[in-house]
Design a protein around this nucleic acid. Structure first.
Lengths: 90, 90
DNA sequence: TCGATAGTTCGACAACCATCTAACTGATGT
DNA sequence: ACATCAGTTAGATGGTTGTCGAACTATCGA
């Protein structure tokens, strides 16, 4: 895994709210953005920002369906990250 | 693992320099602080700060021997963190 | 006792970041 | 065409943090 990607993921996981968002997304196959918006105590703008961070890090994939966004965990990337942690430190 | 500890660790890992420091420490049983100081391109103050972050997060143990500090990875905590990641997301 | 050395603490500063509101874009239904 | 709704973008703001130099503390050797 590229160091830059590794660092981006680590940063993405560092914010508690963002991690909670990721955790929620990982909890189901695909999650409607609206649902998240209804559950998380943040503004739409903030949520959008966090989702972009997660997408940039490669952890989340965003599928647009008309005007609706659907989030899903990129499990391959997640597993690669965990593997990299094990490889780098033990 | 307590959520607060989990978050502290995630934050500690998020800074590239700090992660490099942890990686270096993990590379041997015990590492003299002087050695780190000679290898990392940061001031003593900054290094001291990072080491305290890592210690507060529980990732590193600092043993004082006279005026010398010796760093070591707390492998149990590290493994617990990795396990928690697997538990929370997959 | 004194100077040198290892590491900590303090105060400051610049960069970054999470957050918000408001304005915007684009899709949907009537 | 138009109002509405989902999500993005822009701009502002307050808080966090990585960084440094300088002052400090404590330990060791001479």
């Amino acid at each position: 895994m590229e160091t830059i990607e590794f660092q981006r993921i680590a940063k993405a996981l560092a914010d508690p709210r963002r991690f909670a968002i990721l955790e929620r997304i990982a909890g189901c196959k695909e999650l409607a953005c609206q649902t998240l918006c209804g559950e998380m105590p943040v503004s739409k703008a903030t949520l959008s920002h966090h989702l972009q961070e997660l997408e940039t890090a490669g952890l989340v994939s965003i599928r647009m369906d008309g005007k609706f966004a659907h989030l899903s965990l990129r499990k391959d990337v997640w597993l690669a990250y965990r593997k990299e942690l094990a490889k780098r430190i033990g």
